[in-house]
């Protein structure tokens, strides 16, 4: 297991290097001089950046300097916010996105497992039809529509009650997080529900569940110890990539609900063409996702003995 984790970490670092390289060359192929076409660059920042990234140097030298800075965890200075470190920006805004993301993932995973199991147990009966209809809706309606509609219903609800039950936008308390996290996790929950359902159906028809029945075990025990435990495995394997979907999907929710997260900041940076912020955030997100996938895979190893012991 230790060797496995080490191997995965090395792979992860190589992947992050690839992401950083792709980001670097993508940004450097943007037409025009990044410093010239932006109005907000003050001479001070310009000097800083030129020194730091050697913008007058050949591309490869710049690349080496960039990688060197990255390996020290230094993402550079914002183009548009004078002398502000990208690291500071990330430190300030990422926790907000992370909390939102974690809540959304929890919501999606718990909901997905619960609804998926239910639909499989009530296959082709009313609860199955109702939940699967909602799931199809959850998959088919774009997240910004869901976000807008839920905000609209919040406004209506608050108006109807005459006081602010749940805040419509902003950030701060757990109440602020609830609805955005649900909106953010919704499509993933729908996806996981489908996955859990089909995986559960497969398990229900499996030989070892038949064995468990032939042993005369009570249905509750069969459900928890034989069915859920095996059916949940495919759900866990996709959880890593799904965390990626959720964190980047956070843009929309952060914009609609006016949440000061990194996603919203990234969109603003893109609109202002703040090169270092765009690059820094992309590499940071990329690294975060790569390691989340590793964490999930290692976690998976602890649940599935076939992986753990190999």
């Amino acid at each position: 297991m230790g060797w496995y984790i080490f191997k995965r970490l090395i792979q992860g670092i190589i992947t992050v290097w690839f992401i950083a390289t792709a980001t670097f060359f993508a940004m450097h192929s943007v037409p025009g001089d990044p410093l010239l076409n932006d109005r907000a660059v003050t001479p001070a920042i310009r000097a800083n950046l030129e020194a730091k990234y050697g913008l007058d140097q050949p591309l490869l030298t710049q690349y080496v300097i960039y990688l060197g800075n990255l390996s020290r965890g230094d993402f550079g200075i914002s183009f548009t916010q004078e002398n502000r470190q990208v690291n500071d920006i990330i430190r300030e805004h990422f926790p907000v996105s992370a909390i939102l993301g974690i809540l959304a993932v929890l919501f999606a995973a718990l909901g997905g497992v619960l609804w998926g199991s239910l639909t499989a147990l009530y296959r082709n009966r009313l609860p199955d039809y109702i939940i699967m209809f909602l799931v199809i809706l959850g998959i088919s309606v774009p997240s910004f529509v869901v976000a807008a509609l839920s905000q609209y219903s919040l406004v209506t609800l608050n108006n109807a009650v005459g006081q602010t039950l749940l805040p419509v936008a902003g950030w701060g308390t757990i109440l602020h997080m609830l609805v955005p996290a649900m909106v953010l996790g919704l499509s993933t929950m729908a996806y996981l529900t489908r996955l859990m359902r089909s995986s559960m159906l497969e398990v229900i028809n499996s030989d070892f569940v038949r064995t468990a029945k032939s042993k005369g075990l009570p249905p509750a025990r069969i459900f928890t110890r034989h069915q859920v435990r095996n059916a949940i495995l495919p759900v866990i394997t996709v959880l890593g990539p799904q965390i990626a979907v959720i964190t980047t999907g956070g843009f929309v929710v952060e914009i609609v609900f006016a949440i000061p997260g990194l996603g919203r900041f990234f969109v603003e940076a893109v609109q202002q063409l703040d090169y270092t912020v765009i690059m820094g955030t992309t590499v940071f997100y990329g690294a975060f996702l790569v390691f989340m996938v590793i964490v999930v895979d290692v976690l998976y190893g602890f649940i599935d003995p076939r992986v753990r012991l190999k």
Partner: peptide
């Protein structure tokens, strides 16, 4: 695998700018 690991929406935006 590397391409899969790229944060998808961020790179969509990045490529669009590029």
């Amino acid at each position: 695998d590397f391409v899969v690991a790229l944060p998808f929406l961020l790179f969509m935006i990045l490529f669009k700018i590029a």
